[in-house]
């Protein structure tokens, strides 16, 4: 997994509350899909008109935001389904960081699994970054520094954010969780042996 340290760029505003993963990518696009190439479907119901042309009103279609690495979002961003394809699609679109007052739980976890950083900031702070960006979109840059745990707004204001320390280190170091857990294989096997003695009922019905 790619390590995440600092991301800088124009922050695209999508401040509507409860943007769900069905809006981010419809499930139809994910039947048997892999991790790559899903960016073209990201927000497709909003990004494109019925004839397939770009909807100019959608923020990610507007010039300064087309290559934004940062998305400013509303409450409960990424709520709904567990589809990791939502994260893959947004990543493929070039996004690496989301700033919102709150996130759907599963989406939040899925971000870290893919080298993406979801940052929780107060709604007023998110709004302020959006306003500072809108004042001069083509040269208003926001930075997100995971090492120092601060968001630096276009006006230079530093807003600290908190993040789970375990997830922070995993992101900074680009850790592979499966490899880490595999080092504990002996512990897992001994837990299973103990549990089969302590709770035989949890195991016996499943024997082949």
């Amino acid at each position: 997994m790619d390590a995440f340290t600092t991301i800088t760029g124009p922050a695209a505003p999508l401040l509507r509350a409860n943007v769900d993963t069905d809006m981010i990518i419809p499930a139809q696009r994910l039947i048997g899909a892999g991790r790559d190439g899903l960016g073209r479907y990201a927000f497709e119901r909003f990004r494109f008109n019925a004839d397939g042309s770009d909807n100019p009103d959608f923020p990610l279609n507007q010039a300064p935001y087309r290559a934004s690495p940062i998305l400013l979002a509303g409450e409960n961003f990424g709520c709904g389904s567990s589809r990791e394809g939502a994260v893959w699609a947004l990543r493929d679109l070039g996004l690496r960081c989301f700033i919102a007052p709150s996130f759907g739980d599963i989406f939040y976890n899925n971000c870290f699994q893919n080298g993406m950083l979801p940052v929780r900031l107060a709604a007023a702070d998110v709004q302020r970054i959006a306003e500072q960006t809108a004042a001069s979109p083509s040269n208003a840059y926001t930075s997100v520094d995971l090492e120092r745990q601060v968001v630096i707004t276009p006006n230079g204001e530093e807003i600290p954010f908190s993040v789970d320390q375990r997830k922070r280190s995993a992101l900074l170091e680009g850790l592979d969780e499966i490899a880490l857990t595999m080092k504990r294989r002996a512990e897992i096997l001994s837990w299973q042996a103990r549990d089969q003695a302590a709770r035989p009922w949890a195991w016996e019905g499943l024997r082949f």
Partner: peptide
């Protein structure tokens, strides 16, 4: 509980999950 694809791979390979 529901999980994403990466966590699912972790479970299938290890029968465990890192959870807070």
């Amino acid at each position: 509980f529901g999980i994403g694809a990466s966590e699912l791979t972790h479970v299938l390979a290890t029968q465990t999950l890192m959870q807070r």
